[in-house]
Structure formats: structure tokens, C-alpha cells
Amino acid sequence: MTSATISTETVQGTTGMIRSLIRVMRSILRSKSATLGFVLVILHVLLAVLAPLIAPGNPVKNNPAAVLQLPGGPFPLGTDTLGRDILSRTLYGGQYALAVSFTATALAVLLGTIIAGLAAYYGGWVDQLITRVLDSILAVPAILAMLVVVTVFGSGPWVIVLAVVIVYTGGVTRVVRAAAMDVMPKDFITAARARGEGVVYILSREVFPNILDVVLVEFAMRASWVVLLVSSLSFLGFGANPPTPDWGLMVAENRSLMAVVPLATLAPIVFLATLIVGLNLAADGLAKSLGIDRMKEILG
């Protein structure tokens, strides 16, 4: 079994980190599917960032003169019921999905890692309390929790971010806590405690660098679920507000007209599916090259 790991038993310097990073990158590039995954994700980020430059039209401007056009002429993929260019809406659609999902995933993983670190560091009743409260959040069906958050705070990108953080932090904490618990009894932690180092130092300098691999895989894995959930929320009418170009919203708007303008539904579907397939392949590749069993991480 060949696996490159970022974590070792001692804290590494920056050069060590860079060397491990290169090793992980090499092992990812050796796998065809992982490379495909990263290429897909990078391609989607590029398309979303460059949308203003490459989109042929305005994604939100109604055009009553060109409603439900079939592909051709100025509309490479046709138009929807309001005469908006489908290709432009699809290209811009990645912006909302990527920005909201990335921010939300990053915050959930960051918060989950900190909480997990505190639970592992203090142990005892603090750990019990944290675990029980997070279990109760996990027990509320994810969609219900998100619907309640959106109803209470109103919709908007930051509310969706908040909803994702509430729903996913518990799961992240579960997985990262288990990893942190494995590190806590190690000698270098005992030594740091004996030196009289504080909780911030021990967590940030001793514990977190040694569970970085678990945290990274957790981030990659959650990202694909978050994109999926955020788009579902938009589809249900609780996410992106019209006329925001968003894939979930586009499918909801156009699916009743699938027999008339199929591309208005199929284009956002293809984009959304390729993004999530890319994220999943990338997460698989990352997990493999870091020597982490992804299915075990899912079970937490």
C-alpha cells in the first residue's frame, strides 16, 4: 500500500509541508479518475469566474421578443419562458453554486474542526455535552433544519451559508473529533502539556497539523454534498431568489417545459452533475492519496 501522508508524529516545518503536498499531488496525478475530478472542478471554477467575459448575453435580462427560442443564432442553447439566454444563465449559474457552497463548506469544516479540537482537548463532560448537542442537531432531518433556518432568517446567500453550517458542522465534528482523540494521548501532546502550553498552542501547533489529512478529505467530501443540498434548496424555492441564475432554480423554472425547450432543463443538469462528479472524484483521489478510507469517514 503506497500512501503519502501529510501528517507525521512531529510537527513539520514549512518545507516539510510543501514536500508532502508535492507527494500528494503526484499521487493524485497518477490516478486517471482523480485527475479528471480536479480538471472538472477547475474547469467549473474557471467558467464561473470568466462567465462575464464568455457568456454571449445577459443572464437576467428578459426579452419578450425572443421567448422559448430553440438553439440557434444569438442563442446557442435557446431561451426560456422570459426570453433569457440559457447558455448565459447556465454559465453564470456556477457563480452562486460555487461561492455559496465553498464558503459554507469552509466555515462548517473550520468550525467543526475547532469544536472537535476543544472536545478532544478537554474531554470529560465538555466532550459529552458537545457530542450530545451535535447529535441532537444531526437528528433533525437536514432539509427540515435548513427550511426552518431559511424561514426564520429569510432567504439570501448568507442565510444559506448559515443553514449549511448548522446542518453540517455536527457531522464534521464527529469525524474530526475521532481523529483528534487518536492524537491526544501521544507523547508530544503530553510533553506540551507538561511544558505548560495553553489550549490554543496545543490545538493549533500540535493537534491540527497532525489531523490535517482528515480535515482536508472532510472538506472535499462535504463540498460535494453541500453543492447537492444547496442546489436542491434552490430547486424547492428556498435558495437562490429569482432572477438569480442558479442551476437548481433553472431546473425548477423550466422542467414543466421540458417537451418544448429541453435544453433549458438539460444544460443546468449537465453542469451541476459534472461539477459534483468532479468534486466526488477529487475527494476520492485525495482520500486515497492520503491513505484515508472514505466510506469509514462517511460513517463517522
Partner: peptide
């Protein structure tokens, strides 16, 4: 399985409707 993991329910449902009822 990879596609199943990656495609939200609303997409599967929409495509099934396109295939088996339209």
C-alpha cells in the same frame, strides 16, 4: 454508483420524467 452519489434527487426525478412519462 458515482453518478448516483453525484446527482441530486431532483435531477434524477426530472430525467426519469423526461424519459418515462414524456
Amino acid at each position: 454508483a458515482l453518478v448516483g452519489m453525484s446527482v441530486p434527487e431532483f435531477i434524477v426525478a426530472t430525467l426519469l420524467v423526461l424519459a418515462f412519462s414524456i
